[in-house]
């Protein structure tokens, strides 16, 4: 495998007595999406700030596109784009002016900046809004122009700090599509998120980070498998058949069957495909109608809860130092 495009080795960041990042290491191959998943205050933003030369590591090292973040910060900045947690675009400039501002600062050819601006506005469905000042944009549009600005110089590496926080579901899905396009074109993405579905949707590999430490890593599927096998889930049509169905299910799987009588839903952990086939046959011969029948893998939410003892959207540290 080729050398990683992003590499962190034992990164540590302390603010006084508080250790925000406590020995984080990972590698991201070219053209892949790497997720840093964790609750508020877990150390995700601080990690990104070190990778993007905005903060100096207390110890450890990191390389982006082959350049050391401490020794060659200029080279790192020239090869990456950053979309920070709060959309940092200039409210009083138009979308087009924002793109030009950053393009000019990169020292790009003016003619190129014009072409690229049109191309990016088009790609992010902002052509009509390009000459409006950003203050008048919706939240989703702000996010899109913010991302467009980060892409003006074709960065090989893109850092995205909670790119969809505060977006409505439709805007999130649209942004995910754009990010997938970028990866298809060879961009390497590192994104932080506290949303498990987002990591599940986008990341090729991810680490779960809590209190500044990596507590798990792997592909989304590996992480889900880690926290247990799939379950069989049956939803019966009639309330008075819940108990009969539960008895049938107990005959098929070894473990306890969880019964949610109100929802007419039965969950049995430890099921596999043959168990699924048997319960389907048993339910049919018993004449029990079902609304839904299937296998369910644990969600990343389950994984997170199992790993940390708290839910992902809760803060891991009440005294978080915002840096």
């Amino acid at each position: 495998m080729s050398a990683p495009v992003i590499e962190a080795v034992d990164l540590v960041k302390k603010f006084g007595d508080f250790t925000a990042v406590d020995g984080v290491s990972f590698e991201v191959p070219q053209g892949t999406v790497f997720g840093l998943l964790g609750p508020n205050g877990a150390g995700k933003t601080t990690t990104v700030r070190m990778m993007t030369t905005l903060a100096t590591p207390t110890s450890g090292s990191a390389r982006v596109a082959g350049h050391d973040v401490v020794a060659e910060p200029e080279a790192v900045r020239a090869s990456m784009g950053l979309t920070a947690q709060a959309a940092t675009v200039d409210d009083l400039l138009t979308g087009r002016e924002n793109l030009r501002l950053i393009g000019d600062l990169y020292g790009l050819d003016r003619r190129f900046v014009r072409t690229r601006t049109d191309e990016l506005l088009e790609r992010f469905s902002l052509t009509d809004a390009g000459d409006k000042i950003v203050k008048e944009y919706s939240g989703g549009m702000r996010r899109r122009i913010d991302l467009a600005v980060s892409l003006i110089a074709h960065p090989a590496v893109l850092f995205l700090d909670e790119p969809t926080t505060g977006l409505d579901p439709r805007s999130r899905v649209e942004l995910w599509d754009v990010l997938r396009d970028l990866v298809r074109d060879g961009t390497t993405l590192l994104l932080t998120t506290q949303y498990l579905d987002e990591a599940d949707q986008l990341a090729d590999r991810l680490v779960v980070i809590d209190h500044g430490r990596i507590i798990a890593e792997g592909t989304p599927l590996q992480l889900k498998n880690q926290s247990g096998a799939a379950s069989l889930v049956v939803t019966v049509s009639r309330h008075d058949e819940v108990e009969r169905a539960a008895d049938l299910l107990r005959g098929v799987v070894a473990g306890d069957v969880h019964v949610d009588a109100d929802a007419r839903k039965l969950t049995a952990p430890g099921g596999d495909v043959s168990a699924l086939a048997r319960i389907a046959a048993d339910l049919e011969s018993a004449g029990i109608d079902v609304d839904d029948l299937g296998m369910q893998r644990p969600s990343l939410d389950d994984v997170f809860l199992a790993l940390t003892g708290h839910k992902a959207e809760e803060s891991s540290n009440q005294e978080e130092v915002t840096a």
């Binding site: 000019d104 990169y106 020292g107």
Partner: peptide, 24 residues
């Protein structure tokens, strides 16, 4: 051709940087 030749973000000369930001 433009796509291939343009992105050499070495950073603008300092004068251009300052003027760009003043204009902003």
């Amino acid at each position: 051709a433009v796509e291939r030749s343009a992105p050499k973000p070495q950073g603008a000369g300092m004068v251009r940087q300052v003027l760009t930001l003043v204009r902003r």
